[in-house]
């Protein structure tokens, strides 16, 4: 980028320099990981019927907010996506769009048999496997998984972020080291253009 002559300087360069200075210090890495792991806000995108158990996780029984997780409406304020069950071809577009709107560092949990290998719908003509759409961190077996299983997934994800320094690596390098990014092979939203 060309150096600007404006008095405020180039904001991009300034931000990069500030990030390098701040993250260069060792304790700040830990702070980033710690803070991210205790503010995993799942976006409120319900793909399928596991949403009943997702709701139960944030109900009085398990009380998901004790993990610092609060389901939130706008994807721009969230950093966790929980794929609640089957992703159909129509929904895959929404999943990808929501994922792309979320700010980094962001994480994904695939919940239920349908989100892993199709479950009961493994040979259905209308489903997509979510790991073909977005990179998944944690897989939960069950149909549907119990709310405690989802709580365990959140706890496991928190520990993973802290032990593998996922969030700080992501902020420093622009992508995390442990998972390959996923680019969908087919055009997920192609149908939308057709219908308009």
């Amino acid at each position: 980028m060309q150096e600007g002559k404006a008095y405020v300087g180039n904001l991009d360069v300034t931000a990069k320099r500030a990030r390098d200075i701040l993250l260069g210090k060792v304790p700040l890495d830990k702070v980033v990981d710690w803070a991210t792991s205790f503010s995993l806000w799942p976006v409120h995108l319900t793909t399928s019927c596991c949403s009943t158990e997702f709701a139960a996780t944030f109900s009085p029984r398990v009380d998901g907010e004790q993990f610092g997780a609060l389901p939130w409406v706008g994807p721009r304020q969230t950093n966790l996506i929980i794929i609640e069950g089957t992703v159909t071809k129509k929904m895959a577009c929404a999943v990808r769009l929501t994922w792309e709107q979320m700010p980094a560092p962001k994480f994904a949990i695939a919940m239920g048999a349908c989100a892993l290998d199709g479950g009961l719908f493994y040979n259905s003509y209308n489903i997509v496997k979510p790991w073909q759409v977005i990179p998944i961190d944690i897989y939960l077996p069950g149909c549907p998984p119990r709310p405690e299983t989802l709580a365990r997934a959140i706890v496991t994800l928190q520990r993973k972020i802290r032990s593998k320094k996922v969030a700080s690596t992501w902020v420093r390098e622009g992508w995390r080291g442990d998972i390959e990014p996923v680019i969908p092979k087919e055009d997920l939203c192609g149908w939308a253009a057709k219908s308009i």
Binding site: K90, Y125, S195
Partner: peptide, 18 residues
């Protein structure tokens, strides 16, 4: 259905799911 899937006419018997 989305238009591409609807073109398959999935509930006809000649659309086979194995």
């Amino acid at each position: 259905l989305t238009p591409p899937v609807a073109e398959l006419r999935p509930l006809r018997k000649d659309f086979v799911v194995r």
